[in-house]
């Protein structure tokens, strides 16, 4: 809808858009800013917007108190492990559905999607029971599998929509050229789908990173990721805004950076290809 506009209109639009953008971003900005204040400055009235003594001590305290690095590592392992495992399972499935469609393909795709809509709370107890039975409670491996399963439909769907855009003829050409199925997927499909696979990995990494039902209910001290780390700050204890801010900043910073890279793919991934 790009249309020619007058400069005056552009100036007004710029002002309004920036004002709204900054307003929406403000909570994040405020959190990051507060993390560099002392506790007293954090609750100062009027609020301090820039002129205060910048300090890093909150970060040191948070790391010391809650062992941030361990939670961070757990988050990386859970998000990364579940995403990669999911990709390994999903690539062959998406290949099948995109290039050898049958009458049932559509039904299978929709059914996969429907598993994503199963309310987690409805199966909380059975899953906990299974976890207890197999000694998986508070283990990374157990949670990697669960996170993989809840994101698998999205991974399959995203890969499917990306694979659909690759012309079948190219894969047939490879087949004529003597490539086996493995070689066809390895040398032709995967390299051609690299952008799609990368954005699938990125989005699912983010979704797994932020998942806050299973990670809160199935972990304790050992395997807890950053969602659990931050939940441990939910009961206030004296002056703690600055420390809370530092902990929050540390929990969201890695994913904010990744998220900004993936904004284009976000739409497609989250609407299952219904909006491009």
């Amino acid at each position: 809808m790009a249309r020619a506009t007058t400069t005056r209109r552009k100036v007004i639009t710029t002002a309004v858009a920036w004002a709204i953008g900054l307003l929406i971003f403000f909570p994040i900005y405020w959190t990051i800013l507060t993390s560099f204040k002392t506790e007293a400055q954090a609750i100062n009235d009027p609020p301090l917007f820039f002129f205060f003594d910048w300090t890093l001590e909150n970060y040191a305290i948070v790391q010391e108190r809650s062992d941030y690095m361990r939670f961070l590592w757990n988050s990386v392992v859970l998000a990364g492990g579940s995403t990669l495992l999911g990709i390994l399972v999903a690539v062959p499935a998406a290949w099948s559905m995109a290039f050898v469609p049958s009458k049932r393909t559509k039904d299978i795709l929709l059914w996969m999607l429907s598993t994503k809509m199963l309310p987690a709370v409805g199966v909380l107890y059975p899953i906990s029971l299974i976890f207890v039975q197999f000694n998986l409670l508070d283990t990374r491996i157990g949670l990697v599998v669960v996170l993989m399963l809840i994101n698998l439909p999205i991974i399959v769907w995203m890969l499917y929509t990306y694979f659909k855009e690759i012309p079948v003829e190219i894969l047939e050409a490879a087949r004529m050229d003597g490539a086996s199925l493995r070689e066809e997927i390895l040398y032709i499909l995967t390299p051609m789908a690299v952008p799609g696979i990368a954005s699938t990995i990125l989005l699912n990494f983010i979704l797994a990173w932020n998942e806050a039902f299973w990670t809160l209910n199935l972990t304790a001290a050992k395997a807890g990721p950053l969602t659990a780390f931050i939940a441990s700050y939910s009961s206030p204890e004296g002056l703690f805004f600055a420390k809370l801010s530092a902990a929050s900043t540390m929990a969201i910073a890695p994913i904010l950076v990744l998220g900004w890279f993936s904004q284009k793919q976000l739409v497609r991934g989250l609407t299952f290809g219904a909006v491009k």
């Binding site: 971003f25 983010i206 932020n210």
Partner: peptide, 12 residues
């Protein structure tokens, strides 16, 4: 700026 809140984990 507008998209950023989506990446903030719910607990945070």
């Amino acid at each position: 700026l507008v998209i950023a809140p989506f990446f903030v984990m719910p607990t945070v």
